[in-house]
Design a protein around this nucleic acid. Structure first.
Lengths: 297, 297
DNA sequence: CCCAATTCATGCGTTTTTGTATAGAAGATC
DNA sequence: GATCTTCTATACAAAAACGCATGAATTGGG
C-alpha cells in the first residue's frame, strides 16, 4: 500500500461526499452529526490539501466543479467500503450495550412494538432501540435498519429471514358507524359502503375486490399513506377498514364486519442482515422479537 | 447513502489499517506521518467506537484479533478507493506548485536526471521533485511514482507511455584496465575477461551471451544490484561493464571496448498514469522530461 | 546472561479542531 | 417589491487531538 498517496484527511473527504450528495453544507452537517461551519471548513481544507476547487459557492446553494464531480465515484466507493466495514464490525460486536434499529410498518410500530419493547427494556436494559416507522421498505443492505419486520419474503441472499407466523386481517368498523348504517349481513350489503384506504388507492381497490367486495376507487372516500391515520379514521366512524386482527381486537369501540367472512392471511417475516446476525446484541433483539411477535400478534 | 452507519472516524480506520498492514503502531505512525502515541490512541478510539477489540498487545508487537482480521478486506477496499480519489484529484489539479515523483533506474537517476532537473528548476521553480531511484519497477497504478522512466513497454491500459528514443549501450572499461591487460581486438579476446555485473548474475550472463561473448557466471567476478555501484567498479578497473552510451561518454577515464561491435539498442519509455496525464503540473514535468531525454541521452 | 534496541503506554503542554452565536447574502413567497 | 426563510461565512470560546518526553516491557544479539 502506498501510504503517502492516501494521506489526505479521510473525514474531510467524507464531508465533501455528504455535501455533494445532499446538496448543501447544512444538510451534510446534519447527516454527519456535525455543524455547518465544521463541514464548510473541512471541505475547504480538503480543497486546499488536494489542490483542487471542489465546490463553487453560488449564493444560497453550492455547485460542484468538474473536479468535484470527478471525485464522486471513487468517494462513493470509499463510502461503500466504509459501510461494509461498519457492518463487519457490528457483526463482530460482542457488546450487549448499544443501538439496534428496527424497521416496521407504522401500524406495527405504533400498535405492536411498544408493548414488546417495554418487555425488552426489562430483559436488556443496555440496549438502545431506534424504531423506524415507515411503510417503505428500508434497505437492510444499506443498513437503514438492523432488523426489519416485513410482510413479503425478502429475496436477497445477504438477508436472513424467519417466518414468524401467518397473521390474519379482517374488515372492521366503528360501532357508532354500524349503529347508524345498520349491520351488514352479507358481502352484497357492503356495495356502496364507504371505506378508509391505506397507502395506494388502486392497490386497496384491488385488495378489496380480491375479497369479493364490489368496490371502486370512488368508495374509498378517505385514504392515508399512514396506517395509523387510517385506523384513527376508522375509529372515528369515517368508514370501513382493514386491520390486523390482534390490533383490532385491542382497539375499543371497533367491531368486526361480517364475522363469517374468512380472514385475509399475510405472512410476518423478521429480517436482518446475514452478517449482523452474528452480533450478540442484534441477535438478542432478533430472537426476542421473534418470540414476542409469535406470541402477541 | 446511509450516513449514520459510516459515522465512525475514517482517519482512525486508516490508522488501524496501516497498523495491521505494517505490523506495528510505530511503523504505521511513520507511514502516515504521525506519531506512535497518536496512532495508538486512534486505534483505541476506533475499538471504542465500533465496540470491537481489534488488536491484542502481545508485548513488543501486536496481534490482530479475529474481529480485526475481518475488518481488513473492507478497509483495504476503502484505501483503494482513497487512492483512486487522490489520483483523480491530482489529475484535476491545476496547480503548478506541488510535488512530482519520478521513478528511474539508479543509473538514470544518478547520471542523467540531475542535469535535466537543474534545467527544470529554472523552468518551473515551484515544482518539488522526488526521485525514486530503484531498479524495481515501481507500480504507477498504486501511485508509487507519478512518472517513470522505463526500458520496457508498459502493458496496462491505465498507463500512458511515450517512446523517447532507442538508446544505445556498449561495452566499456577503464583505460587503466586496458593498459594493463591490453586492448582486445575481437570478441574472442574477451573470453576469460572479468566482467562487472549489474542486477541479476544470470540475466547478465544471458545478456552477454546474446552479444556473442562466451562468458559464464564465473566471469562476473563483481556484481551489484546497483548500476551506480557497478559503474564505479568499472571505473576502478575491476572489470568490463555495459553502460548506456551517453553516460559512458561523459565518464572520464572510460573507453569503449571493441568500438566496431554493434551497440545494444534498448527503448526508453516515459510512462505516467492516464489520469495524471491531465494534471497541469505533472504534464509539465512529463513533457519537459520527454524533450530533455530525447536531447540528452 | 546481560545489554541494546524496539515497541507500546502515559503525562503534560501546545496546537488544532469544533461548536455556538451571529451576520450577511440569495432565493422563495405573497 | 418587501419579507421570510434558508444557506454560507466569520469570530470567539471550549474541547479535543496531537507531539514530545519518558517509562515499562519484551525480544534479539553478543
Amino acid at each position: 500500500m502506498n501510504w503517502a498517496a492516501i494521506g489526505f484527511d479521510w473525514n474531510q473527504a467524507r464531508a465533501f461526499l455528504a455535501t455533494a450528495e445532499l446538496g448543501s453544507l447544512s444538510a451534510a452537517a446534519k447527516a454527519l452529526h456535525l455543524t455547518q461551519p465544521t463541514i464548510g471548513r473541512q471541505v475547504a481544507a480538503l480543497e486546499d490539501a488536494l489542490g483542487v476547487v471542489l465546490i463553487e459557492r453560488a449564493g444560497r446553494s453550492i455547485v460542484l466543479t468538474d473536479a468535484g464531480r470527478d471525485l464522486l465515484p471513487p468517494l462513493r466507493m470509499m463510502a461503500e467500503a466504509a459501510l461494509q466495514t461498519g457492518l463487519t464490525a457490528s457483526a463482530r460486536s460482542e457488546a450487549i450495550e448499544g443501538r439496534v434499529s428496527i424497521s416496521a410498518s407504522d401500524v406495527m410500530a405504533a400498535f405492536v412494538l411498544p408493548e414488546i419493547l417495554a418487555e425488552l427494556r426489562v430483559a436488556a436494559p443496555g440496549i438502545e432501540i431506534e424504531v423506524i416507522a415507515s411503510n417503505a421498505l428500508s434497505d437492510l443492505r444499506r443498513r437503514e435498519a438492523d432488523i426489519a419486520i416485513r410482510h413479503v419474503r425478502p429475496q436477497h441472499q445477504d438477508l436472513v429471514a424467519r417466518l414468524i407466523r401467518e397473521a390474519r386481517a379482517n374488515l372492521y368498523a366503528a360501532e357508532s358507524l354500524l349503529e347508524r348504517t345498520g349491520r351488514p349481513k352479507s358481502l352484497k350489503d357492503l356495495t356502496g359502503e364507504v371505506f378508509v384506504g391505506i397507502g395506494n388507492r388502486e392497490d386497496m381497490v384491488r385488495f378489496l375486490n380480491g375479497l369479493g367486495l364490489k368496490v371502486t376507487a370512488a368508495n374509498i372516500r378517505f385514504n392515508s399513506a399512514s396506517g395509523v391515520v387510517g385506523w384513527q379514521m376508522v375509529r372515528q366512524g369515517l368508514g370501513l377498514g382493514i386491520m390486523e386482527e390482534g390490533v383490532a381486537e385491542r382497539t375499543p369501540g371497533i367491531v368486526r364486519v361480517l364475522p363469517t367472512m374468512a380472514p385475509v392471511h399475510f405472512p410476518v417475516w423478521l429480517v436482518t442482515h446475514r452478517e449482523l446476525n452474528t452480533s450478540r446484541r442484534i441477535r438478542l433483539v432478533y430472537d426476542f422479537l421473534a418470540e414476542a411477535l409469535s406470541r402477541t400478534l
